[in-house]
Design a protein around this nucleic acid. Structure first.
Lengths: 156, 156
DNA sequence: AAGTTGACTTTAGTCAACTGAAGTCAGTTC
DNA sequence: GAACTGACTTCAGTTGACTAAAGTCAACTT
């Protein structure tokens, strides 16, 4: 059986579910500035401990603990690699779960660009055609969905 | 690999811009668990101080300071309204800037659903046709963009 | 006139995340 | 063999977000 809640909370109090909300789970993983910026760096292609640290602007200790948490949460993998003439190093690379967060990162990026007082001269484009990329809400039937036409469904 | 950097962005270290990144700006506003959950509630249609507090599960003091911060950041408006037989009350309603965050909230929701060990029986649907809503990366030319085809560009 | 309600503020304290600085340790270059 | 490098760990201290509990205050009900 399925209960429909229209956009305007008909029964919101019937399912106050502290701790089970998927948004809470996601924020537990990438809900701090540094964790999200590490994901940003991983999307940009950064792979090494040292680079994550200085590009995000955080201390060694914080870099270590954040990377560890993201590996444990399954967003990054940690593996060693070897370049000729160098000792073995570690690299941190996005997993599929990590790549699945890409729309969120792009969404935050575009939101920040749109609403910043002085946005930096950056943009995210489609590599194929060079036009600007945005995040859109699309349903399985292919409709573009407006904010007002979203509906939260509770299955029972 | 995941994202191509064009032009001078090929050297990522040439533009380490602590504090200017739009993602940092966005995380400064909704980068805590409670701030994001307040936005969730606002999307669900919650408008009153008391309801935000108990539905998110936070103390009065935290409710007050988070709502205040979100109003100051321009994501919510605070206004009074009057129902017959009741005193005037305050309501907190999403602004356009707040609604612009919707794709991020839906993205976090769906990410949490996909990657939770035991996802709750919830889903976000299109109110018009009842099918599941997801966030997609779409360029201005209308192409659906894969994670690997994103490019960060610096405007000159 | 007394009581209730909604939206707070204040106080006092906890806790997790962060910082800088220093130390560790194995492998690589000189 | 000595110095260097990358990826850490450890330590001591700070900051910011959060909590519970109590107090405030104006508007409304009884």
């Amino acid at each position: 059986m399925v209960m429909r809640l229209s956009g305007k909370l008909e029964n919101r109090d019937a399912w106050v579910t502290h701790g089970v909300c998927p948004i809470e789970k996601a924020m537990g993983v990438v809900g701090s500035r540094n964790a999200m910026l590490i994901m940003r760096e991983a999307f940009y292609g950064t792979t090494r401990f040292e680079d994550f640290g200085h590009r995000v602007g955080m201390s060694d200790a914080t870099t270590a603990s954040n990377l560890k948490a993201l590996v444990e949460a399954g967003l990054l993998t940690r593996s060693s690699y070897k370049e000729a003439g160098h000792r073995t190093r570690l690299e941190y690379v996005l997993t599929e779960a990590g790549r699945d967060l890409m729309p969120v990162v792009v969404g935050l990026f575009n939101w920040g660009m749109k609403h910043a007082a002085a946005p930096p001269p950056l943009a995210i484009d489609h590599d194929g055609c060079g036009t600007h990329v945005d995040v859109r809400l699309v349903c399985d039937a292919g409709h573009e969905v407006a904010t007002d036409d979203l509906e939260l469904r509770v299955a029972r």
